[in-house]
Design a binder for these strands. Structure first.
Length: 558
RNA sequence: GCUCCUAUAGUGUAGUCCGGUUAAGCAUUUUGGCUUCUCAAGCCAAAGACUCGGGUUCAAAUCCCGAUGGGAGCACCA
């Protein structure tokens, strides 16, 4: 073993390492550390005194099997295993609030939860968490469903938290009657002050009868803000969430599906606790900012004698320079700095889709982040790398010329050329009609000199005879082409002009990047018009782009 | 301010629970090479990390204590 280790490390080994290896493989020696240490020292000294060649010879003679290269450790696929799970009995859920457009953060929660259900052949529930009538809207509800569908996430059940209003009321009354909840009519500021100072208020002393009466009054008499139902937690608790949190409050706004049927609405903590329990959720994964609610949720369920799910947490996901929160995005839209929630600079699902990011790439990317609780501020190119792998294989290669310069090529013998759509995959060819007039990119023009050759890809070598405002060249024999620059071109007579949008980082630090959207007028081949809308192409020597419309493409990534 | 979470290469992570079999694995990035009628993809190679300080132990990325950096919560939002 010492020999092997020495050989693998340039002819030298160390006692400690060998000792560790032995103890690691053969635990029975662990009690005899002192004794074997001596032997090891000797062996190690022996081995180290040999030259590397001698070591190799020795190994070949005595232990040829260790020269066989070790197999690579297999990388775990997917999420970490869960403890104490029963195959087929796992239930997870994704509970978005329909109060905004879904973004990459929603994708993370949805994907992690649905992957676990899939992994254990369980069930996955989509639950619209709609207990704040003032915030929810059908538009968002629909957008979330569209987004999830695009991501390819399937659920076994769709429901809304508000389906179970009666259950919340029943459970609420149960808590009131058991003295575990009370109605508080203090002012909002006082409540918050008492929480900070860890003091109970007089309402918490009220008896059950009074609480019941006040509960009735909450149905009609009390105005919003006059009274709330509070859980009897622990006003002295270090975890501020436990300091008699709100269970119900009065909201008079019109709910997007239930209208004005209810005016007492459960709070998030109460609703989630009850819902997860009655929906049979076994594992609930949420982002880290909810971590402190775990204790509360468990306590509420204990107070009601209800089953508790396992709760797990993961870090929030954001991209560098791409804000996720409505608080930041909304003003940008209002000021016209971004066009809408589908602006390709945004991390919303709709924007990602428009930009040409594939759902599979998002899934892989999110899986690669794992269940870490460390903050993840990923650079966008991590996602791009995954996306490239999905997109490369079936993106047609098209020519596109930016900062177009004219070039005339003499002696051309053909009037059309056939170019293949993909260098390795069989994706057919396209035919391009040509005459002697072409466009090539300004960048390329800068790099060529009179008397030099260039190769127009798929066409011919061209000798540059004159370089001025316009360029003149002549067709020369195809031969050696390895050394000459190969560039893409567009035929002038059928060039199709499009707008190419290049999204860049929206923010540099806290500062809005005024140049975050570059728009270029470029020429591409007529074949562009035949592409389906939304199709991903690669503009040769430029990068992957998605056809947004007949006249506009969006740059995906290099 | 109080409470909680977190810390591994440029970046993102695995390993940490149960200390040794891994002088830290993978992906990405970067750099070189091969291949190629694209600056793409593919293939090969190289570079690069356990936040710091103590302690326990024959042995610490792993356990304990402390410091520091980052984040979150302290709503009648979710």
């Amino acid at each position: 073993m010492a020999l092997q280790n020495a050989f693998e490390h340039e002819g030298e080994t160390r006692d400690k390492i060998i000792l560790g290896k032995i103890l690691g493989t053969k635990p029975e020696f662990r009690t005899k550390v002192k004794e074997i240490s001596k032997d090891i020292s000797e062996i190690v000294a022996n081995v180290n005194s040999l030259s590397i060649d001698e070591q190799e010879k020795e190994i070949k003679e005595k232990f040829p099997e260790i020269l066989i290269p070790k197999e690579k450790i297999e990388q775990r696929e997917g999420l970490p295993e869960l403890k104490d799970v029963i195959q087929g009995k796992v239930v997870t859920r994704f509970p978005p609030e329909p109060n905004g457009y879904p973004h990459i953060g929603h994708a993370k929660a949805a994907i992690i939860n649905s992957e676990y259900a899939k992994m254990y052949d369980g069930k996955f529930i989509l639950r619209m968490d709609d207990t704040n009538p003032e915030a929810e809207r059908m538009e968002y509800h629909a957008a979330i469903k569209v987004g999830l569908e695009w991501l390819g996430i399937k659920f076994d059940k769709i429901k809304s938290t508000s389906d179970d209003m009666q259950i919340f009321y029943d459970k609420g009354i149960e808590l009131i009657n058991s003295g575990k909840a009370y109605i508080c009519t203090c002012k909002r500021e006082d409540i918050s002050k008492n929480r900070r100072e860890r003091k109970a208020c007089k309402c918490s002393m009220g008896d059950i009868d009074k609480n019941n009466k006040n509960w009735t009054k909450m149905q009609e008499k009390f105005k919003p803000g006059d009274a709330i139902v509070r859980f009897r937690g622990d006003m002295k608790a270090d975890n501020a969430v436990m300091r008699d949190p709100v269970l119900f409050r009065i909201i008079e706004g019109k709910h997007y599906t239930l209208g004005e049927r209810y005016r007492i609405w459960p709070s998030y903590d109460f609703a989630v606790a009850i819902e997860d329990s009655i929906d049979g959720v076994t594992h609930a994964f949420r982002s880290k900012e909810f971590e402190l609610r775990k204790e509360l949720i468990d306590t509420i369920l204990d107070a009601l004698g209800m089953r508790k799910p396992y709760q797990g947490f993961f870090s929030r996901l954001e991209f560098k320079g791409m804000p996720i929160s409505k608080r930041i995005i909304k003003p940008l839209i209002e000021e016209g700095k971004v066009s809408w929630y589908d602006d390709p600079r945004l991390p919303t699902l709709e924007a990602l889709r428009r930009r040409g990011i594939k759902p599979e790439a998002i899934r892989k990317f999110i899986m690669s982040l794992g269940l870490t609780k460390a903050n993840t501020l990923a650079p966008f190119d991590a996602l791009e790398a995954f996306n490239r792998k999905f997109v490369d294989g079936d993106s047609k290669r098209l020519f596109m010329v930016k900062d177009a310069k004219k070039i005339t090529v003499k002696n051309l013998t053909m009037s059309f050329v056939e170019v293949s759509n993909h260098p390795v995959n069989e994706m057919g060819k396209r035919r391009i009609e040509i005459d002697e007039n072409f466009y090539i990119s300004g960048d390329d023009v800068q790099n060529i000199q009179e008397g030099e050759q260039i190769r127009l890809l798929g066409l011919s070598n061209v000798l540059i005879t004159k370089k001025g405002e316009e360029i003149i060249g002549e067709c020369v024999n195809d031969e050696e082409s390895a050394q000459i620059p190969k560039i893409q071109w567009v035929s002038q007579k059928n060039a199709h002009q499009i707008k190419l949008i290049i999204p860049k980082t929206l923010f540099n630090g806290d500062e809005f990047n005024e140049n975050s959207l570059e728009e270029l007028d470029v020429y591409t081949e007529p074949h562009y018009l035949e592409l389906k809308e939304g199709e991903e192409v690669q503009f040769v020597r430029f990068g992957y782009c998605r056809k947004d419309s007949q006249n506009q493409a969006i740059f995906t990534h290099k």
